[in-house]
Write a protein that binds this DNA or RNA. Structure first.
Ligand SMILES: [Mn+2]
Ligand SMILES: [Mn+2]
Ligand SMILES: [Mn+2]
Ligand SMILES: [Mn+2]
Lengths: 227, 227
DNA sequence: TGTTGTTTTTAGGGTGGTCTAAAAATAACG
DNA sequence: CGTTATTTTTAGACCACCCTAAAAACAACA
């Protein structure tokens, strides 16, 4: 292709890989494995190896055969910028265009790759410099700094504890729509009434007085700030 | 590639070709030539021939070797939808994010390819269903219908004629910034004072009383609605 | 420590998109 | 109408990204 003139330095695909590696590195602390990336990207391990060579060539990751990968400073910055864009666009889609929180991921997945000077900062300003996206995930600022939110999984609360829903661990449409159905949106206040050790489910009361029983799965995937 | 599951039916590249063909077909009425497309896309004629085969295969164009191409109904609809998206995003960038009218083309060129059900219609609603983009170009509606605007090139006016700037034929940064410098934005009122046959330049008076002499080039590229 | 099972890489190939150079078809003109 | 100039297509190659199947490396464990 002779490296097209104004073509961006990193392709959509490369960016998606970087984001996946960043995400995996967050959870594991150790070097990220080829298989983990393949699972995250829903692609083959062979394709991943292929891409890892390219990313290493561009010095976006540290890569040693069979030893897994880590993002370089540059790669990390790129991934952070991408997450910033992704989450800002999600805020736009929900706050300005009126999409539901379970509808925006795929669109943001595309919008995050739009390149152009000033776009992100203008978008940020337009949205009122939000610190969290529609799923409660933090939005890094222009310098890559992350806001920290004091939150725990719902099923770590004890009976009598009160809290506010601040985020979700899962982002699937099924889970988010189920929460909608239960009337549990971001910001919802609740009190934990009882814990059932048998199946790790919990009983809660919402701000409007409804009592709900939530499975272990829901309790793990819902984050709350204890108040 | 085994036709990836959720991959869109048409690639970014194919969409850009369709748009280029649509644009060229508008001006020429005859079948669009390979060379014209190559020039418009800034690519080689060989690459164009290659792509024409693919587009014909997908029945987006009618293509006969050496005979040029025409969009099929389907291709035409796709191109129209793309132009709609492009221009709506331009409105967004200017009206909502505060970009200047000469800065938005490249960004819209990327944003127009974002796919997702409901996005365009929600964007349209959010923007107040605009009928024209920041350059005065008409935005087709969801059914592909175009608004018609009664406008002529500035240099067709006669002394004494008054008008309002409604659009531009050229979209280059240089031209648009020159207009900014002259204080000639969309909606600017003006009166043609005199025509100079020697070099086809014209003298005008703006709403705020300034008198300007505009070259033939500017006179050709500025559209006005006579009032 | 050798064998087995898992992970990762290589080998080989495919598609979409690009290019240059050469061949073929069409258009222009004397 | 034949020759020349132009346009268009083919030939052949390259890169990014993907795949499957086989080989190689590593990890686990008896
Ligand atoms: Mn993405
Ligand atoms: Mn999110
Ligand atoms: Mn485009
Ligand atoms: Mn425009």
């Amino acid at each position: 292709m002779a490296r097209r003139l104004h073509a961006p330095m990193t392709s959509h695909t490369e960016e998606n890989y970087l984001k996946a590696i960043f995400k995996l590195a967050e959870k594991t602390a150790k070097a990220v494995s080829t298989n983990a990336i393949a699972a995250e990207m829903r692609t083959s391990a062979a394709s991943v190896t292929d891409m890892l060579k390219r990313l290493a060539e561009k010095e976006l990751i540290h890569y040693e055969k069979y030893r897994g990968v880590q993002l370089t400073e540059q790669g990390s910055q790129l991934a952070t910028a991408l997450i910033r864009k992704h989450r800002l666009w999600e805020v736009f889609l929900v706050d300005k265009l009126g999409f539901a929180w379970d509808e925006v991921h795929d669109l943001a997945e595309q919008l995050e790759h739009v390149q152009g000077s000033g776009l992100v900062e203008r978008l940020d300003t337009f949205l009122g410099r939000p610190k969290f996206d529609p799923h409660g995930d933090p939005i890094p600022d222009a310098e890559g700094r992350w806001a920290f939110r004091q939150q725990v999984a719902l099923n770590t609360l004890q009976p009598g504890d009160k809290g506010v829903v601040t985020g979700v661990d899962e982002h699937s449409t099924e889970f988010l729509q189920y929460l909608d159905q239960l009337g549990l949106a971001l910001g919802a206040r609740l009190e934990l009434l009882e814990r059932y050790p048998y199946d790790q489910s919990v009983r809660i009361r919402t701000a409007d007085g409804r009592e709900l029983t939530l499975s272990e799965k829901v309790g793990q995937n819902l984050y709350v700030k204890v108040s």
